[in-house]
Design a binder for these strands. Structure first.
Length: 431
RNA sequence: UCCGGCGUAGCUCAAUUGGCAGAGCGGGUGGCUGUUAACCACUAGGUUGUAGGUUCGAGUCCUACCGCCGGAGCCA
């Protein structure tokens, strides 16, 4: 056996004898010449088997190869302009590891339900492969961004003891005889960590038991949430636009091939750089009215409203100063116009919806206590959270970025179910 | 939870007015020395989601249920 290589590093081994370990993606035959498309997770390469260049035994073995059969292929790597990756393998030997019988996902169109039932196999397909590689790049870029700015990653717990804002959207579990809930956000714990380290972020799964059946909703999704001490809303919005720009530009730079596979039009993504348009809630309402949208002043925006707003701009748009009543208890109100919260949402272009929600947090003990009471929340449960306002409280702000919606936007995928390896939806918890 | 749509071969779909259940892909067999979801020929493959009803006759019409899809509501 020759040196084992990854297909993606073929360029380094031109005209050398190498071995590739992988799976058969597809096969074509023309009598005495056969073409094997082999994937190894890094890329796909066409392997050419010519009858009178290999032993009879090896040539006959190609007959046994079915889709997704695992194998080792040895041969000479040669440059070929006809090949998508620029190289082909001229086969000298084939070792079959396991023959796959009746692989369900054939090279043709399939329906959503069938593919979702076979998600564990679907992720081997080209398109899913490209999406998940971009997801990886987005997560890496997001963490790099904060790591390069001296943030400390402090993860929040998944189990939480209390229902922060009503139990309807929380998943309840049994925790040694007491109720516990799966977290909806790491934010409150990130605030505690923020008072310890100054700049922190957490990254993990969050859970919402909402019966939402739309292309933007999962019951389990991943969020990355920075929290910064001595930051006001303006600082927060600036951090958010720099953050999102960095992610988009990094993906454009490092995942060009995957974006091509997905046939993503990148011209709009290329324009994503600071500053982003920032509009007050009142301006947003004006825009909706100008576009003939029926909207009750004081409400939060629905999915259709968000699309109208984001369609006005080429870049993501930040809407700030939402009516305090539709926002969470912990958001600080603007002292100059107290009916508004110092909150902001970032809406992705092209109808992908809200990708960031953030705010400056209430940092005054008495005010926060009052809000907790107004919302009928348990003072006892939030004792530790109130402590943060008791022992050296400072102005601080943060936001959360939903990974799946960000992946959907950047890849141009229509539904978030394709942006996470194993999606959890209202109607699906298999595989 | 509400509105709309769909359910036929392993998969994607077709089947005229209610009148013989069919094609492509995948599988099998054979052919082809440059194929790109290769192609060509042959071949196997069906409780038409489930239960009931109307009818001489139901994939098709009616009722209920199940499942899925899209949307709304909901959604720091």
């Amino acid at each position: 056996m020759a040196q084992i290589i990854r297909i993606s590093e073929s360029g380094k081994y031109e005209n050398q004898e190498v071995t590739i370990q992988g799976w058969l993606y597809n096969k074509r035959s023309s009598g005495k010449i056969r073409f094997l498309l082999v994937r190894d997770g890094s890329a796909i390469i066409q392997c050419v088997v010519v009858k009178n260049e290999v032993s009879e035994d090896v040539f006959e073995r190609t007959e046994l190869l079915t889709q997704e059969t695992s194998l080792r292929v040895t041969g000479k790597l040669v440059a070929d302009k006809r090949a998508p990756i620029g190289y082909e393998l001229h086969v000298s030997d084939i070792e079959i590891i396991q023959i796959a019988q009746d692989y369900p996902i054939t090279p043709k169109e399939h329906g959503v339900d069938f593919l979702m039932d076979h998600r564990h196999l679907w992720i081997r397909s080209k398109r899913q492969h490209a999406i998940l590689r971009i997801r990886h790049e987005i997560i890496k870029a997001a963490q790099d961004f904060f790591n390069n700015r001296d943030f400390i990653k402090v993860d929040s717990p998944i189990f939480t003891p209390n229902a922060a804002e009503g139990t309807t959207t929380l998943f309840k579990t049994d925790y040694f005889g007491s109720p516990a809930y799966l977290t909806q956000s790491g934010q409150l714990y990130a605030e505690a960590a923020c008072m310890a380290f100054g700049r922190v972020y957490c990254f993990g799964p969050t859970f919402r038991a909402e019966k939402s059946k739309t292309r933007r909703h999962l019951t389990e999704f991943w969020m990355i949430e920075p929290e910064v001490a001595f930051f006001d809303l303006q600082d927060d919005m600036q951090l958010a636009e720099e953050f999102v720009s960095y992610i988009v530009q990094t993906v454009l730079k490092n995942r060009k091939q995957e974006l091509e596979t997905l046939e993503r039009d990148t011209t709009k993504l290329e324009k994503v750089s600071p500053p982003f348009p920032k509009i007050h809630y009142n301006e947003a309402v004006e825009i909706l009215k100008k576009n003939g949208v029926e909207f009750t002043y004081g409400d939060d925006f629905g999915g259709a409203d968000e699309t109208v707003l984001s369609d006005q701009f080429e870049k993501p748009v930040i809407v700030h100063h939402y009516p305090a009543e539709v926002k969470a208890f912990y958001m600080k109100r603007d002292p100059e116009e107290p009916q508004f919260a110092l909150a902001m949402d970032m809406l992705a272009p092209e109808g992908y919806g809200e990708i960031i929600g953030g705010s400056q947090r209430e940092d005054d003990y008495d005010t926060l206590l009052q809000r907790i009471r107004e919302h009928n929340l348990s003072e006892e449960a939030f004792k530790w959270y109130l402590d943060l306002r008791k022992y050296g409280s400072v102005p601080h702000s943060g936001f959360g970025l939903g990974i799946e919606r960000t992946v959907a936007w950047i890849t141009g995928v229509k539904h978030v179910r394709e942006t996470i390896p194993f999606p959890r939806l209202m109607q699906r918890i298999y595989p």
